Amino acid sequence: MAKDRKPAGANGRPAGRGGATAKGGRTRPAANVVAPQRPWGLIAGAMAVVVFAAAVITYAVIQVNESNANQVESIDEIDGAEVFDYAAGQDHVTTPVSYEQSPPVGGPHDGNWADCTGTVYDVDIRHENAVHSLEHGAVWITYDPDALSEDEIATLAEQVEGESYRMLSPYAGLDSPISLQSWNHQLKVDSADDVRIEQFADLMTTKAGAYPEPGASCENPAFAADPLTAEDASTPIGPSDMPTTEGAEPTDAEPTETGAP
């Protein structure tokens, strides 16, 4: 019996399976053409990251430049700052002191210092204790409570909170809205936004060579918890670094103004 034959193709050869017949009778599969796709989502995401990073870097550079522009290296660069000449070794006293400057910037003072570890007081602290803090390298910011709003006082507090060797307190009878003191230095300004406040505080806080007792502590938690006020008599509270005497006359110190008011 004859074998079945596959039907011939158009050229007389057996038809291939599933497609055109190539040379030698072999078939090639049909090509699937796929158009390439661009990852637009990834590209957009990458561009957003680059733009954000550039914005952050630009902001940081601007902030650094502004900060550097406000920095000073000498008290002479701060307009209106005054310099006095109270020598080291001032007496420690238990009696009230009539200071030449208001607020005081040096002279005899109480044997106990006011806490100045970034301390914000809501009372007019005893001046004799505050001067002892100046002797240890502190900056004391004072303000007229009748001249400033709560927001302005909060702005001043930002210069003090978290900053060792700084303290803030109201001061009765102040002749300007705000006054800053360090040992032998003073600056009076009208506004809590005055850039000179930060300049003075940054420059004079524990400034080398500008105060009598480098390395002395500013910690007196007992005073911070229950501060003596300007109306109080001398009372032993917290640490004292030397014995007190019964009284002493204040040392006169004429101011030298370092810049235009």
Rank of each mutant, 00 (worst) to 15 (best):
E150A: 13
A114V: 14
I125Q: 04
V93N: 08
L180I: 14
G111C: 15
V97A: 05
Y171E: 04
H109F: 10
H127D: 13
W183Y: 15
A208W: 00
R126N: 06
D122I: 03
V120K: 07
P214K: 09
T142I: 03
E73W: 07
V72P: 01
R196M: 09
Q159K: 12
A172P: 00
G173T: 07
A208C: 01
T142Y: 00
G107L: 09
H109M: 14
D151I: 02
E213Q: 15
V131C: 13
E128D: 14
D85A: 15
L187H: 07
H132S: 12
G173P: 10
P108D: 11
E82M: 02
L203R: 01
L180Y: 09
H132G: 05
D202H: 07
L180D: 08
T117C: 02
A138Q: 02
E135T: 11
A138T: 15
W140S: 06
Y99C: 13
V195M: 06
V160M: 10
V123R: 03
G118K: 02
Q101W: 01
H132Y: 09
A157C: 06
I178D: 01
R196V: 08
N129I: 00
A130H: 03
G89V: 11
G137I: 08
H185K: 11
L156H: 11
A208Q: 07
D91V: 10
D202K: 10
I75M: 10
A154C: 06
T95M: 05
G107Q: 12
G118R: 02
N129A: 13
V93H: 09
G80A: 07
D122A: 02
G118A: 04
D79S: 10
I75L: 11
D85W: 10
S182M: 07
L187Q: 01
D91Q: 13
E77Q: 14
T206V: 12
G89T: 08
E77W: 02
P170Q: 01
A154M: 02
A208M: 01
E158K: 15
S176F: 05
S164L: 06
S74H: 12
I153F: 02
L156D: 14
G209Y: 12
L134K: 09
V195T: 13
V160Y: 04
T205M: 02
I178Y: 05
Y143H: 11
H185M: 12
T205Y: 05
Q199K: 11
S169E: 01
E152T: 07
F84V: 08
L148Q: 03
A157W: 11
K207C: 04
P170C: 00
P212I: 14
Q101G: 03
E135G: 15
P177N: 08
E73Y: 10
E128C: 08
H136G: 02
A192C: 06
Q90H: 08
D194R: 07
W183E: 09
S149I: 06
Q181H: 14
A88Q: 11
K188C: 00
V123D: 02
Y121R: 01
Q181T: 15
V160P: 06
G89C: 10
N129C: 08
N184S: 12
R166S: 14
D190P: 00
L168G: 09
G89R: 05
H132A: 11
T94W: 01
L148W: 04
C116W: 13
I141E: 04
D193C: 05
G118Q: 03
D175K: 08
V195L: 10
S176I: 00
S74E: 07
Y165G: 00
T117A: 04
V189W: 04
I197L: 13
S98K: 11
G111S: 15
I153K: 09
S164G: 05
